[in-house]
């Protein structure tokens, strides 16, 4: 497969996954903000900007942050390279360029998503109806992933699509955990309070893990369990361990010249997660752990691009 085509398939899937995670973050933020105290409210509103590293860009055009301005900026602003709008547009543009190498159902799914996105943008969904928009984005992402999984030949296009999806998801889950933990940490003595319950439940819900948590831990929501679930539990499909498992599996199926650095790093990261211990992680500091992980996953993405996708 041409490197350019591999690259476009990789980013097509990566951008769609990113759009989904943005919708998750914004959906939960909308809920949390409604029931947080004035001092945590701002922190919660700032969190999505911190996660996407777009705080600076936001305050270039806004004086203060409110829920509608945040949603407008993060969901629909076409000048924001990190908005849901831009991500879906990028996913669709990449798909258009490779529509002959993906299945027609994949192309039609993304093209229809892009066409319908225009209606949401025109309706300027920043109020209560935004929840419907976030649900829609999640559904379209589920649909696209399902269509991909169900129609495309198990070959290079499939493998690079999977790499894009799971690199992005690992990155997103780590960021969500890091930023949320940061907000919640000062209040850790209040664990068990009603507000905290909401905050932690929101974090879990943003990665579709609330019910799973209940099933596994049958306990009140405790930070260390949440971290263990989202970092080390390979049964949880949005956890770092599950993402690395998929990345290693996809890398196993592709061959390239000079791809040893990428394969080695992926295997190392996976081994660290498989043999990781949550108490140790907390002893050394969760934030430090996640910062290192994000650097590693960035490096892995870079090595994958260099090995297969034509990046110099």
């Amino acid at each position: 497969m041409l490197s350019r085509v591999g690259d476009q398939i990789f980013w097509m899937s990566r951008f769609m996954e990113r759009a989904e995670n943005l919708a998750r973050i914004l959906g939960v933020t909308s809920n949390v903000v409604l029931c947080s105290s004035p001092e945590t409210q701002e922190q919660n509103l700032l969190a999505p900007l911190t996660i996407t590293a777009s705080t600076k860009a936001f305050f270039k055009t806004h004086e203060a942050v409110s829920l509608p301005t945040l949603i407008d900026f993060m969901a629909l602003d076409e000048s924001n390279p990190s908005s849901i709008y831009t991500c879906i547009k990028s996913a669709r543009d990449n798909a258009h360029a490779v529509r002959w190498q993906i299945t027609s159902e994949m192309w039609e799914t993304l093209n229809a998503t892009w066409i319908d996105l225009g209606a949401f943008k025109r309706a300027n969904v920043t109020g209560p109806e935004a929840t419907r928009f976030f649900d829609w984005v999640k559904e379209r992402s589920h649909l696209f992933r399902g269509v991909t999984y169900g129609t495309i030949m198990r070959g290079e296009a499939f493998n690079f699509s999977r790499l894009g999806t799971f690199l992005e998801r690992a990155d997103d889950t780590a960021r969500i955990l890091d930023v949320k933990y940061h907000i919640l940490l000062p209040r850790v003595e209040d664990v068990g309070g009603a507000l905290d319950y909401y905050q932690w439940a929101a974090l879990l819900k943003s990665v579709s893990s609330f019910e799973t948590y209940r099933t596994i831990y049958r306990d009140q929501v405790r930070p260390i369990n949440v971290a263990e679930l989202l970092i080390l539990d390979r049964r949880m499909p949005r956890s770092l361990a599950a993402c690395l498992e998929q990345i290693v599996a996809a890398l196993d199926r592709v061959e390239g010249q000079n791809d040893h650095p990428a394969k080695r790093l992926a295997a190392e990261l996976q081994a660290r997660l498989v043999h990781g211990d949550i108490d140790e992680i907390f002893r050394d500091g969760l934030h430090e752990y996640l910062t290192t992980f994000l650097e590693d996953i960035g490096e892995l993405g870079y090595r994958i691009q260099r090995a297969y996708l034509g990046a110099l």
């Binding site: 497969m1 041409l2 490197s3 350019r4 290079e156 690079f160 390239g256």
Partner: peptide
């Protein structure tokens, strides 16, 4: 951009080299 020339031969960048 998929093509390049090396020693007067044409090559394409593919995922496997």
């Amino acid at each position: 951009a998929d093509l390049f020339v090396k020693e007067a031969q044409i090559y394409m960048h593919t995922t496997s080299g």
